[in-house]
Each structure stands twice: as C-alpha cells, then as structure tokens.
Design a protein around this nucleic acid. Structure first.
Lengths: 201, 201, 201, 201
DNA sequence: TATGAATGAGCATTCATTCAT
DNA sequence: AATGAATGAATGCTCATTCAT
C-alpha cells in the first residue's frame, strides 16, 4: 500500500487537504476550486499541495479515491447481503441514496469532479472509468436477476445506464434545494425499478 | 424580433460564432471553452465576440437559446400530437433521444453549459431554470396520465426527476463512445417507463 | 480659415461630434471618453470620428479650440473694456467664474483634457501651452497695474500662477457639488486679490 | 498595525513596488500607469502586484497612504507649533511647498491619483475625500484666526478653496519646468495670503 | 516538511483605428 | 459621406507550479 511509505504526519496533512478540497468542491464548484482556495481553507500555504500530491490532478484523484472508498465501504456489503437480485437492486438504490444523505459533501465533490474533469485534448476524462465500473457492477446485478428469473428479459447494459442516470440525477436536485426531502424520491425510485425490472406476467 | 434589427452580415457572424462555440463546447468541454479558442476556430480575432455578443455570458446564452430552439422545434409538436399520456410519454422519450441522434454536438454543448455554469458565489447557476422547466413539463405530462387513469398513483415530481435523469444520462454515454447504438437504449427507456408508470393490476 | 474648405454638412457633423465629446468628457471624465461612447451619444457610427477629425487627438484638439473660442469671446472684450488694471483684474476673475456658470460643461471638458492629456513619453502634454498663455495674459494685466502704480511691488509671474490656481480650483468644486453657490466664492476671490495686489500703505 | 503581520521580505517588496508606482505615476502620468509598466520598472512579473496588494486599486491606495504619511509627518507638527493663526497660515503654506521641494515625485504621484481617479459611473472618485479633508483643515485654521481677531471677516470655506487652489497649482508648474525656482513663488504665496487674510484697517 | 514569493501563461474585455461596402 | 465589422494591442487579473529559504 502506498500509504505505508508515508509518515503519520504526512498522512494527516493529506487527509486534511482532501477534506478541505471536498469542502471547496462541494460548496464552490469545480471551476472555483483552486489550490489557493483549498490551501486558504486548510490554513496552509499554497505550495504544500503540489508538494504532497504532486499536482492538482493527483489531489483530485485522491479525492475521488477517498469518496469511492467511503461509498464502497457503505454500499458493497449491504448489497451482497441480500438473498435475491430484487432485494439487491432495492439495497443498491437505497444504499446510494443513503450515502447521499450521510455524505452529501463528498458526493457533491465527486459529482463536480466527474462532470468537469476532462482529458488533455478535451476528450473523455480520467474518471469516466469510475462511472464505467458503476455501470458494470449494476449490469452484473441485473444479469443475476435475469438468470434467476426474477427479472424480465431486459437489456442489462441499457437498464444499468437508466438506473444510474436516475440515481445520479439526485445530487443535482440536492444542490438546488439542500432541504429537499429524499424519502419520496427513494420510494419512487425503488418502486419504479422494482416494477420495471420484474418479470411481467 | 431582435434579429430584425441586425444586419445580414452580423447575423451570419453570430451564427458562425455560435456554431464554433458549440463545436468547442462539445469537443473540448466547458472549462476549455475560452473566447480565444472559439475565435481561433472561427478564424477571427478574439475581440469580435464581445463585439457581437457583448460578452462571454451572452454568447453562452445565445448558444442555449439556439439549442433550446432546435429542441423545441423538434420535440414539442411531436408530443402534443399524441392522443394519450402514455403515447405522450413515449413520444417525449423518443423525441429526446432522436434529438440527441440528430443534434449531438448542440446537445453536448448544452449539457456542458448546464452542468458547468455557476452563480457568482458558486451557487446555483443561471441555467438551472432550464432544467427546472423540463422537470415541470414532465410533471404536467405525468399528471395528465394520472388524471386519465392511465398511470398508477405515482409521485409526479419524483418520477419526473427519475425520467429526466435517465434521459440525461445518455449524452454522457455518447461522449465516451460516439458510435454507441442508441436503439436498444431507446427501446429500454420506453419499455421501462411504460411499465413503471402504467396502472398496476 | 480651415473651415472654408469644409462643406456645410461636414461642419455640422463636426459641431455635433464636438458637442457630444464635451458632454461625455464633462459627465464621464477623460478616462471614460472613448470614441465609441461619443459616437453612441451622437447616434453615429464609431468610424465617423476618425473620418472627420483624423483621430482622437484631433477631436480633443477641436474641443479645446471650441472652448477656448467660447471663453475668449466672452472674456477678452470684458477685460479690455476696463479703465484700470484693478478693474481689469476684477473683470478677469468675474469673467472666468461667469464663464463657469454659463458654460459649465465645456469648462469641465476642458479641465478634463488639460489635466489628463499627456505627451508621448508621459511628458508635458500638448495643452500646457494653453495654460501658459493664460498665465502670460494674466502677467500682462498685473504688469499693467504695477506700471500705473495701482498694484504693489508683486512678482507678476508668481501672482499670476496664484490667481490662476485659485480660479482653476473652482471647477473641481463644481464637479463634487453641482449646486454649489458660486457667489460667495466670486466675492471672496475678488476681495482677496483686490487686497493682495493693491499698493500697500 | 497591519504591517506587523507581514514578512520582512513582503514589506520590502511592497515598498519597492510603491516606489516604482510613484515613479511611473510622476513621470508617465496616471493613464500610462499600468501594472505592467510598474512591474517592468521593478523588474518583476506583472502578477506579483495583485499578489501583494490584491489589485490595482489597493496599490493606488497604498501610494496615497504612503504620501499622506510623508506629508503629515512633515507638516502637521510644523503648523501646530505656531503661536498665532497668522504664523500658522504661513507655516501651512511654507510646509506645503517645502514638501513639494523635498518629495516632488510622491507629490506628483498623489496629484495624478487625486485628479484622475474616478468613481464607477464617472462620478466623484474615492480620493476626493482627501481633498475635502484638506479644505476642512484649512477652514479650521482660518476660523481660528477669525476668532482671535487676527483675520478679517472672510468666508473661511471660500478662502480655504482659494488657498488650496493656489498651492495645488504649483505641482503643475513643476511638471512643466523641473528646475523652477520655488522661492519667489513661496514668498509671493506667503505675502499674498498674509495681506489678504489680515484684519483690514 | 513547510513556507510564501515569484513566474509566465491564460483569461475576458476595451480601445483606437482601418477599410470594404 | 457614412457605416459597422474587424483587427491587434493593451488592460487587470487568476492560476498551477516552482523553488530558495
């Protein structure tokens, strides 16, 4: 593990910087997230960030890794614990929205990064991979349900795109209205995709 | 009409600049869309853009207006022509995806703007309104279906968020894979929301 | 005369542009006086000004000439009509302030130009000459009074600088407070320099 | 004190930049005083100035503060030390002109700023206050002389405007002729306002 | 380890001027 | 005689990064 080669104090600094970067990303947006702003919030000097992370790109990467870790820790066991694909899908949706509720800022930061980061020539960014993995995981879940006969004869890839799209629309709503009540949204998501995936009579 | 007070040559320049701005937005992304880059593509000098549009913000606005015009022209009559809410919803989804197929770059440009433009303090941007209107329109369509008894007792707002989210996920896929076959996606979208909204026995 | 080589219509255009330039200079200040702004006020196109005047510098020059003409027309006969140097000095001061009252905007425009215009390398500007002439005229008036024994043994050049300085301070006050009552100021100016120049017992 | 929170090196840079700004203002004039020119003179890169001062406006402000400090240090004790208003007025005039002799460039820089800086809409600038204070101070001095019966029944405000105007005319002469002998001017100023203010028999 | 001063490129915008129409 | 589109330089400013201390 990379962190093993890092001193305790360095690890603490990195964590502090990542936290501040998340704060700035979530509240100011990607475009206003400059190293200077992050450093100001962390009450450290600007040069520290390139020093610890190598550059802005690597800081962003570290933020992504951190949020991904948080999300994985919370959601994966929850989903794997389900006995059926139907239950698994519900746990997936609920887990995702529960995560938004509990870790709103990290989630918003991640959304900022994913939607704004681009490749050198303006091409697909380095974090599309992340989204790709999310789609693939969902595809597996849907494939499971098809195999067990719980789900209808749906196209797993398309359906995965649809479900992820529906889920990913939520953070955007949260930005606009921080007091938005997520409960009806969760209910409708669960219901919609329960109905839409189950084997039709 | 504002355009009537404009010279033919001015209108042509504006159109050319808007086209180039769409090109840059779609291929380079919002962050890399500077007036300098747009001007370079249009083979004009940078100052021409503030000259014709007043400023960057107004250029962006003009792009949004142009794309909105394209989208409205294509989709509104199509949806209004449907006899039932069910047919209307199908037309809505198909219309949206048809638009993506025919006007990919304008659509991508619009997505860039909507997701990246922010208010002064990092708050909600000036184009969230646009998204809000889209949600509201969809809510009306869903309300119609509920009143006629075609749709189940769904929460129109939540369902509108879900459907728009699912649709808005598509452009992101198109960026990654320009040769993506949209047909299965359209089919699955139509099927999913047909099943998920209809009155359950 | 240069104007003889100009058509009537051209002369009218020039006059219109000069009037607008005075307006902009007086209300917006020198720095905000761009050809574009003058043209906008005159409801003509920007290029007309270089066309008629050759360039911004010549427009400025024309404004100066216009205001100088106004001032000369009003003040010179008034002063020359006085029988004594003492009366002449009073007429000079009163004439200057009367001019400010009647032609405030042209006067302010002139002040803007004189204080802001600079030579190519930042050196003395092309309109210091104007000020020099004003000082010299005043010196002559003071010399006259010394010769007739009306005035004390003052240094005409220094006293001319002082009187002009005192007079030139007034427009600055007018900018700050457009409703400033000039009467006490005129009275005090006349009194002060009557006392300060007269032969002391 | 604000400067205590600044590094030694930062304080030195600020001082260097202020000095260069004064130099440019005094020799090139306000309009030609761009951050780029100041930076070129200081042999630093342009961005350093916003870095240290926050922006051009703050640099200008720092120059004003610096010159005001110089002037206050030199003149205030000198005037307060005088036993009578008459002596006070003489000290005021002499102090002002002595300052011009010793700190010509800072004074010219200040004049450039005061006469050129304007508010957003072309209205009164942020440094008119400064001039207002100068007038008010002078009014107090004149009021003192009236109360003690040293001065005639003059209008303190008008007389203050006249005296300041006469003094402020001097820098303009210095710009034109750097080798101008100030002594006759000082003498005439002192004499003029001694005569013009004293109680008349 | 950390600082914060400095660089140099890039940004949007404004300007006087030119010139084809 | 006039238009208004276009140019190219200059403006103040922000940014990620580097580096001596």
């Amino acid at each position: 593990m990379a962190s093993e080669s890092r001193t305790f104090i360095e690890e603490a600094r990195r964590a502090q910087i990542i936290t501040c970067a998340i704060e700035v990303l979530a509240t100011q947006g990607y475009a206003r997230t400059s190293l200077a702003r992050v450093a100001r919030l962390a009450k450290i000097s600007t040069g520290v960030i390139p020093y610890h992370f190598g550059g802005k790109a690597q800081l962003i990467q570290a933020v992504v890794a951190e949020v991904a870790r948080l999300a994985t820790d919370m959601m994966v066991p929850r989903i794997l614990a389900q006995p059926t694909a139907t239950e698994g899908l519900r746990a997936y949706i609920e887990g995702n929205l529960e995560f938004m509720r509990l870790h709103r800022k990290p989630l918003l930061a991640l959304m900022e990064i994913v939607t704004h980061e681009r490749g050198d020539g303006g091409g697909p960014g380095p974090y599309d991979e992340q989204a790709e993995i999310a789609i693939a995981d969902l595809e597996k879940l849907l494939g499971w349900g098809k195999r067990t006969g719980e789900f209808r004869d749906l196209d797993p890839h398309s359906m995965a795109v649809i479900i992820r799209g529906a889920i990913d629309a939520v953070p955007g709503r949260l930005v606009r209205d921080p007091h938005l009540d997520l409960d009806p949204l969760i209910r409708e998501l669960v219901t919609t995709f329960a109905i839409a995936t189950r084997r039709q009579r």
